[in-house]
C-alpha cells in the first residue's frame, strides 16, 4: 500500500517548489532547528494538505512559504521565482481569525483593504468584495464589524478577503482549529467549493488527520521537529466529496489509517531519537 500511495503524478512546472528547505531560529543557546530538510512540489491547481504532529514546524513552513520568515537554507520558488518577501499572487488565511481581521473596520472594508492597497478602483473593489462575501454566504454581513460575528463567520470573512484578492496560491494555516465541529465541517466544504470554483492552488496546513484526508487531493505528512517529509500521499477519493458519504468510504478509512500511522511513527521516532533532535 505504501508504494502506491506514495507515487505522485508528474506535473510540468510546479506552482510551488520547496527544495532542501531548512529553518533555524536563532536563540540564546545557539539556535533551534525547526525545519531540517523539506522537499516537495505543489503543481498548479492542486489542493494539498500538510499534516504533522504538534511542534512539527507547520506554521514555520507556511510562514517561510508566505515570505513572512526568512529561511536559513534551501530553495523556495513560486512559479520558478525565488520567494524573498510576500509574493503578490499569494494570500494567507491565518488560524487566529480574530486577530487577522481588523476590528476597527467593517467586514466589507476588511475584504476591500488588500484591493485598495493594490490600487484597484473603488467600483471594482466594491463589486469584488460583494462577490466574495456572497461566495462565503455572508452577503448580508458586510456592514458589520468582525467581532459582531461568530468565530466561523469571522473565518469566512478572512476567506472572502483572500478570495476577493484573487491569488494564484492560497495558504491556510490551521484555519479551522479554533471553531466548533459543525462549523468546521461547513467550512471544509466551503474550501472545497471555492477551490473548485476558482481553480487556485491551495496549501492547507492542519493537525487534523481526518480533515487533511477529506480536504486534500494530496497529503504531505511531516515528521516531528527538526522536520522532514515523512510521507507524501495521493488522496484518490472522488472529487465530489460529502461529509457523510466520503467519510464512510473504505478508502477514506484506509487513507486516514495510513496517515495516522505515519504520524504515530513520526512521534515515536522523535521520542526514541531515531531522528536526532538536534
Amino acid at each position: 500500500m505504501r508504494a502506491d500511495t506514495k507515487s505522485i503524478p508528474a506535473f510540468d512546472g510546479p506552482m510551488l517548489q520547496v527544495a532542501g528547505l531548512r529553518k533555524i531560529y536563532p536563540t540564546a543557546t545557539g539556535g533551534f532547528e525547526a525545519i531540517r530538510n523539506l522537499t516537495f512540489d505543489v503543481p498548479a491547481g492542486q489542493l494539498a494538505c500538510i499534516v504533522g504532529p504538534s511542534g512539527a514546524g507547520k506554521t514555520t513552513l507556511l510562514k517561510c512559504i508566505a515570505g513572512l520568515l526568512p529561511r536559513t537554507e534551501g530553495v523556495l520558488e513560486l512559479h520558478g521565482k525565488d520567494i524573498t518577501g510576500p509574493p503578490k499572487t499569494m494570500a494567507v488565511v491565518f488560524q487566529e481569525y480574530g486577530r487577522s481581521l481588523f476590528p476597527w473596520m467593517t467586514v466589507e472594508r476588511n475584504v476591500e483593504l488588500p484591493l485598495k492597497a493594490a490600487g484597484v478602483p473603488k467600483a471594482e473593489r466594491r463589486a469584488r468584495a460583494a462577490e466574495a462575501l456572497e461566495q462565503v454566504d455572508l452577503a448580508d454581513a458586510g456592514g458589520k464589524y468582525p467581532w459582531q460575528l461568530s468565530g466561523g463567520m469571522q473565518q469566512r470573512v478572512a476567506i472572502a478577503r483572500a478570495v476577493a484578492y484573487r491569488p494564484e496560491v492560497l495558504l491556510m494555516d490551521e484555519p479551522f482549529a479554533a471553531v466548533d465541529a459543525q462549523t468546521r465541517a461547513d467550512l471544509e466544504d466551503l474550501v472545497r467549493r471555492i477551490w473548485k470554483e476558482l481553480g487556485i492552488t491551495i496549501l492547507f496546513v492542519t493537525h487534523d488527520i481526518d480533515e487533511s484526508v477529506y480536504l486534500g487531493e494530496r497529503v504531505i505528512v511531516l515528521s516531528a521537529a527538526p522536520t522532514v517529509v515523512q510521507d507524501d500521499i495521493l488522496v484518490d477519493l472522488p472529487a465530489d466529496r460529502d461529509q457523510l458519504r466520503t467519510r464512510s468510504l473504505p478508502r477514506f478509512a484506509e487513507l486516514r489509517t495510513h496517515v495516522f500511522e505515519e504520524i504515530q511513527r513520526a512521534k515515536a521516532e522523535a521520542k526514541t531519537g531515531a531522528i536526532p533532535a538536534r
Partner: peptide, 25 residues
C-alpha cells in the same frame, strides 16, 4: 498550542516583535 515553541522563538527574530528580555544583547 500546536507548534507553540516555534512561534515563541519566532518572536525573538531580529526585526520582529520581541518581548524585552532582561539583559538581552
Amino acid at each position: 498550542m500546536e507548534s507553540a515553541p516555534a512561534r515563541a522563538v519566532a518572536r525573538s527574530e531580529p526585526g520582529r516583535r520581541s518581548p524585552r528580555r532582561p539583559g538581552s544583547g
